[in-house]
Structure formats: C-alpha cells, structure tokens
Computed example of a mutant assay.
Amino acid sequence: MGQAIARAFAADGAKVVVAGREQQLKTLADQIKGPFQMLQDLIETMESGSSIINISSAAAIIGFENRMAYTGAKAGTEHVLREVANEYGCRGIRLNTIAPVLTETPLSADYHRTPGVVDAFVEEYPLGR
C-alpha cells in the first residue's frame, strides 16, 4: 500500500522515491540505531570533561533529492544527539556534531557527476572549498 501511495504522489509530480524495505532498514540501522546503541553503551562510562564528536551531514537539515531514508535518518540521529547533550551536559559531557555538506562518497556520486552542482555548493562555503 505504501508503494502505491508513493507512486500516486510521483504521478502527480512529487519527487517520491520508492526504496526497498531492506534498504530502508539498513539505512536506519546504520544511521540511527548504530549511533544510538553506541551512546547507550558509552555514555554512562564517561567522566566530566569528556566529549563526543558525531559526524553527521547537512542532509539532516537541507535534505537531498532521492535520499529520503538517509536524510530522515540523519535528522533523527541529530535530534537524539541534542537530547543526549541536554541530558548529560549537566554532568560536564560535551557533544558536538560536524555536518559536512557535499563530501564525495558513493551516495553523493550522482551529485558530483552533475555539471555545476559542486561549484554551486562551493560558492556558499565560507572558505570556498
């Protein structure tokens, strides 16, 4: 039923991608479940002054076409991390997230091959690179 609804939206012009259930579950496991379980295992052993640095993606905020499972998972992970920072900041545990925009990976390969895309992003970077 979910795929039928997605196809109906797509037929009306919406950019909806019908990802397979296995890929959705893998993405969610990699991007939400993994960091969440790592935090559960690690946080109680940390002392005041400790720091957690998470690597995220600007996709959590701005989104990227045809990457709904990934961008949704990244956004969910960032929210979990904000909650951890809120809960454990009083214990002196710091949590920072680094969110690069267009890092060259297999997931972003299509963007890197499309003429002008990388240049458009670089123009917006404060350091221009």
Rank of each mutant, 00 (worst) to 15 (best):
T27L: 10
P126N: 02
L102A: 02
K26W: 04
G128P: 00
L42Y: 09
C90Y: 12
E47T: 13
R91Q: 11
T103I: 00
S108L: 09
M68S: 14
G34T: 13
I5G: 10
A109F: 03
G72I: 11
K26R: 15
S48I: 02
A75W: 01
Y125S: 05
N96H: 08
I62R: 04
I32H: 01
A109W: 06
R113P: 01
L107E: 05
G2I: 11
G63S: 00
G20L: 08
L42M: 13
A10L: 03
R91A: 05
I32N: 10
I5E: 15
P126K: 03
R7I: 08
G20R: 09
S57A: 12
E124V: 01
R7D: 15
P126V: 06
P35V: 05
Y111A: 12
K26D: 11
E83R: 05
Y125E: 08
Y88C: 07
V118S: 01
A14H: 14
T114A: 05
L107V: 03
M38K: 05
G76W: 00
I98V: 15
D41E: 15
E87I: 06
S56R: 02
K26G: 04
A69L: 05
I98R: 13
E124Y: 01
A11T: 03
I93R: 11
A99H: 08
G72Q: 02
S56H: 02
D119V: 00
Q40S: 10
S108Q: 09
K15C: 07
E44V: 12
A69D: 11
I5R: 15
K26A: 14
A4G: 11
P106E: 05
R94M: 04
I5Q: 15
H79P: 00
F64C: 13
H112C: 06
E78F: 03
R129L: 07
H112I: 01
G116E: 04
H79N: 12
M38W: 14
E22N: 10
I32Q: 00
